[in-house]
Amino acid sequence: MTNVLTIEQLSYKHNLKTILENVDLTLETGKIVGLLGENGAGKTTLMRLITGSAKGSGTITVCGDRAVAHQKSNVSFTEQLKGFRANTKIDRIVDFYRAVYPDFNGQRFEELVTFLQIDTSLRLGALSKGMKEKVVIALTLARQTHLYLLDEPFSGIDSMSRKRIISSIIKWKPDDATMIISDHYVSEIAPILDEIVVVKDHTIYTHRQSDEIREEFGLGIEAYYESLYEGGVNHD
């Protein structure tokens, strides 16, 4: 199996405070990976470093490429609506995407819009939190690329929307693409995760297969994750 992402000796400081230190991480293609950690642990920062939105030291290779522009074309990240004003219509944002991302698949987007029940004639400022997240998910998944970064796609979302989003992830993630989903609320997405990566103490504390955790420790993902903070489980 080939690797979609290789991170070596990545460190990042913000205002002289260490956020991440000596991060090494390799992810294979075709996986769904849960990125877990407390609020402020550096999950979002790690994603931002992968996209080049934040600048750290160390090397990040996406699909064997280190050139920034190529990396960007291989990554679809959920943080992208900040540049639009509140009165922008969703349709117009879609036009922007269609124009700017050559891998944006209009048909996939239409399917996602139907499935997630999105009304694209609304304005950005008029969307509820759940609807906004659905729009972001639809835009992110409509691109056909190799690495998807979903930053806390479920925070503050009602359970029906959450279920729809999870289903759309299973339905539309390309087989040869890897998806990283960050969350601090694990139980809902646990069944869809191939592996988990825990960010703790400024680095990757654990990187394990989910079913391996269940087999080896007889623990649920959530219980295992919590045990890391209580020091209950011996890990390597």
Partner: peptide
């Protein structure tokens, strides 16, 4: 803004 900075194009361009 990530809206623009995530666009797959080099920084110079």
């Amino acid at each position: 803004r990530d809206t623009y900075r995530l666009i797959p194009i080099g920084e110079t361009k």
